[in-house]
Design a protein around this nucleic acid. Sequence first.
DNA 1: AAAATACATCGTAATATTGCGATATAAATG
DNA 2: CATTTATATCGCAATATTACGATGTATTTT
Lengths: 108, 108
Amino acid sequence: MGLTKTEIFTEKQNKLATMLKAIAHPARIAIIQHLIKAQACICGDLVEELGLAQATISQHLKELKNAGLIQGTIEGTSVCYCIDPKVWKQYKTALEGFFAMEISNNCC
Amino acid sequence: MGLTKTEIFTEKQNKLATMLKAIAHPARIAIIQHLIKAQACICGDLVEELGLAQATISQHLKELKNAGLIQGTIEGTSVCYCIDPKVWKQYKTALEGFFAMEISNNCC
DNA sequence: AAAATACATCGTAATATTGCGATATAAATG
DNA sequence: CATTTATATCGCAATATTACGATGTATTTT
């Protein structure tokens, strides 16, 4: 046990859950917000900005990269990260779709 | 370690992460979707609908309840669950706010 | 080429999540 | 009041996540 039973859910449900998981951590939210605010893509600054160890930040960046949300470009000794606007929009659309469902007030 | 360092993030970031975490699981997404579709609030049907054990469903319901997303009303021997429209809207607004940020295309 | 700089990855410890069988609890029914 | 029905909770096992020190790697600088 301890393993999510993805087989029993729809592809859409699994995908949405994976997307949400990618951003369901304060550090990753902070990273995303900083990447957006800083516009020009930063990298090692994140270690200073947030108070986490370099290894930890690197790990979070990797997860965001796996999710497709960010891109990293090597620039000399450093790596420049930035949001992928296309994937960002996909996320936005997917979540809008989920929350578009109307909730009826006549509850139990 | 293994403990998220909530102290170093803003209240907003932590709250958003918690909200996302609550729905970042296919089973909970499926539960929410079924509760919305079934409109009239169902309960034990979820055990049949999804292929998870009763104890597992109950645990997911508890998490959704903790998140404030659903309400449970005792109705005889069973419990009727439904989405809380107010909290649902709060979620929607919070996520819209997050994804409202404009992404610049001039990346690295 | 050696040293410095900036990241990534490895290994590990601590904690959290997922899932379920077994059992408890509470209301309805006979 | 015993039984059934429906759900919650406990306890456990398996796996995942979070965090970080130590170390590896690649590029620049000296």
